[in-house]
Simulated assay, not measured.
Amino acid sequence: MSNWKKVLSLGLVLLVVAVLAACGGNDEEANSEENNEQTEQESNTDVNEEEISIGQINWAENIAVTNMWKVILEEKGYNVKLSVLDMGTMMKALESGDLDVSLEVWLPVQDANYLEEYQDTVNFSDATWFDNAKVGLVVPEYVEEVDSIEDLNEHKDLFNGEIVGFDPGAGTMEVTEDLIEEYNLEFELLPSSEPAMLTQIGEAVANEEPIVAPLWTPHWIFSEYDLKFLEDPENIYGGVEKIHHATRTDFADEYPNVSEYFKNWKMDDEQIGELINYVENADEPIEGAREWVEENQDLIDEWVQE
């Protein structure tokens, strides 16, 4: 074989070896990138482009906590949508899967009707985020004639025979209807909305006029006005209420981390009161919630630990 042919053959061999080595390197690099991507996906199984939809009711504490969770979850990389609904529609949406989460279910009394109706089709969490809630009829402190629900009929004319209510379909409104029947009250429960009810209470207090309405704690209004709960000898409203959350049935399978966050969530009177105050006094609820989250990161870290 001539020298130039030997050189050519050797060159071809070296070229083939170089190409194979390059291909092998590319495959290893591609495999490494794929493995890294897979590992990252596995460590963030909850986070995706799907929206987590959280139902919101126009109650002060509900607006506060829904915006708080929107801030917390979006900082974790989730997309969160708040949908304003009434309680009945919210339960139906959880049942159908059109809604992911409801953050406020009062048990054992106020929302017992929803638990009974949807316990097989909606996941009601055993975990609670507030353990010292109270519900009842309230009047201003200056209404000295009335201290108990049993006193109301005797002073019916003082209140024009009206109990000023809020959202129709709310569990507390239904319990109040039962209370009117149990106590044989000669009163009519007037549905409206929470903001409208609070406005009427504020106007009545400003004019030192009598008014009676169903209310609950935690609520900012008790720091604004001197109000008292009426005694409830028949215990129709129940004693201490606990606030739970509820999700569609397969939510925990798709979002196991978020499901654990909600189960870890706990607040006391001071914390929820401060959060409500931040949200109420901000230009936008989300801004107040974001400021509160920034100032309470240690508490939130207890809820969202991986």
Rank of each mutant, 00 (worst) to 15 (best):
W129G: 01
Y142H: 02
D147E: 15
D111H: 00
L107N: 07
L99T: 09
S125I: 06
A112V: 02
N123W: 03
T89I: 08
E141H: 06
A93L: 10
G88W: 05
Y118E: 00
F130W: 08
S102D: 12
V109E: 06
T128V: 15
G161E: 02
E104L: 14
F159A: 12
A133V: 13
D86K: 05
V143G: 12
F130V: 12
F166M: 13
V105C: 01
N160R: 08
L107K: 06
T128D: 05
G97E: 01
A133S: 15
T121Y: 00
V101S: 09
V164G: 07
E162G: 07
L115M: 08
D131M: 11
K134V: 13
G169E: 01
N123T: 08
E95L: 01
G88M: 11
F159V: 03
D157S: 12
H155L: 02
V138H: 07
D98G: 06
W129C: 09
V122N: 00
F166K: 07
A127C: 05
E104T: 14
E104G: 04
G136E: 14
E162D: 10
L94P: 00
E145C: 10
L85V: 08
Q119I: 05
G165M: 03
A127I: 04
V135H: 13
Y118V: 04
H155Q: 13
K134S: 14
I149G: 04
A93Y: 11
E144N: 11
I163E: 09
L137T: 14
S102L: 07
E154T: 15
D126N: 14
L85E: 13
N132E: 15
L103P: 08
M87F: 03
G161D: 03
L85F: 06
E150T: 14
E144K: 13
E141V: 11
W129M: 05
D86A: 11
E116F: 03
I149N: 09
G161N: 04
N160K: 06
F166V: 08
